[in-house]
């Protein structure tokens, strides 16, 4: 039996550890509270119309979030549109097709891609990707698909589509690695059942693998969306930073995260700064909800706790 003297430090240690663990909760509350506190002035001045007002005019001290919400959603969805098929296909390639010797190097390359910081993607985007998009891909798209409003208008290079492509590259690793985990959790018996019926490789993928894994793959896509929404630096560097709503993907845009990055230190009036905080509040609200949805989906898929995300 430990004496009373040895119990005190034990209890103290436990409380210190509990305090550290509860910091997680404290931090979430803190983040939410600070963003709310920082945006109180604009919340009371504009009310909910802040969300659908498209005016952003610091000179007249009028602020609305719509162009930024639009830019964030469009660039993120573009990124998903590119990254989900590529990422899932790569995951299929890695789990179902690739020879054992090829798997490890590819997985390592994808892990390295995940380690590249946002600002380096931005730098590369400005000086390598954008010139190529401007002179080749965009010209080609306008030539052949110019009948769509999406591919009309002047080409600057910096654009919604450029942002979508850069963000797609940045979320590819997470979508690929989670999809791979999901596909690996498909029991081999499912594949064998399909093969034993005389299915071709593609048919096995379709009836046994993908249909089994579809909910988890959807969760992977949603998690990718959560990442895409919050991407800041690379987007700021390639999207063109113009608060407008345009049908053309060649037109510049602006996102919640990038307007905060650009204008926060230049905010001259209190209302201006408050409005930027409210943009942050909107961004965090959406990102957290999307993240929670993804966690829940992935949890139900694997049954055994959330898949490791990092």
């Amino acid at each position: 039996m430990p004496g009373p003297g040895s119990r005190a430090p034990d209890i103290a240690f436990k409380w210190v550890a509990a305090l550290a663990a509860s910091m997680i909760i404290v931090l979430i509350v803190l983040v939410g509270w600070q963003l709310y506190a920082g945006s109180r002035m604009s919340l009371s001045k504009f009310g909910p119309s802040f969300l659908w007002s498209s005016e952003w005019d610091p000179v007249q001290d009028k602020y609305g979030a719509l162009p930024f919400i639009f830019g964030t959603l469009v660039s993120s969805l573009l990124a998903l549109l590119i990254a989900v098929p590529l990422g899932v296909a790569t995951a299929i390639f890695l789990t179902e097709l690739a020879p054992q010797k090829l798997r490890q190097p590819i997985v390592m390359a994808i892990e390295m891609l995940a380690a590249v910081p946002s600002v380096i993607f931005g730098l590369w985007g400005i000086f390598v990707l954008i010139p190529w998009l401007r002179d080749h891909l965009f010209v080609w798209l306008r030539h052949y698909f110019g009948f769509l409003p999406l591919f009309q208008g002047p080409i600057y290079g910096v654009s919604m589509l450029a942002a979508g492509i850069v963000v797609a590259i940045m979320i590819l690793p997470i979508i690929t690695s989670i999809s791979r985990e999901i596909l690996r959790s498909v029991p081999n018996l499912q594949r064998e059942a399909a093969y034993a019926l005389g299915a071709t490789r593609w048919e096995v993928l379709k009836i046994a693998v993908l249909s089994y894994a579809r909910r988890g793959l959807f969760g992977a896509a949603v998690l990718g969306l959560g990442r895409a929404l919050g991407e800041t630096m690379a987007v700021t560097m390639v999207i063109g930073n113009r608060p407008q709503i345009s049908a053309s993907l060649f037109a510049p845009g602006y996102t919640l995260a990038s307007v905060i990055a650009n204008e926060f230190t230049e905010a001259t009036s209190d209302l201006y700064l408050n409005s930027l905080f409210e943009l942050g509040l909107v961004l965090m609200g959406v990102a957290i909800m999307v993240n929670i949805a993804a966690q829940v989906m992935l949890k139900s898929m694997t049954g055994s706790g959330p898949i490791k995300v990092n």
Partner: peptide, 10 residues
């Protein structure tokens, strides 16, 4: 995991 998903700019 939720905290992990908070955008870094926030």
């Amino acid at each position: 995991d939720v905290l992990n998903g908070v955008p870094s700019i926030v």
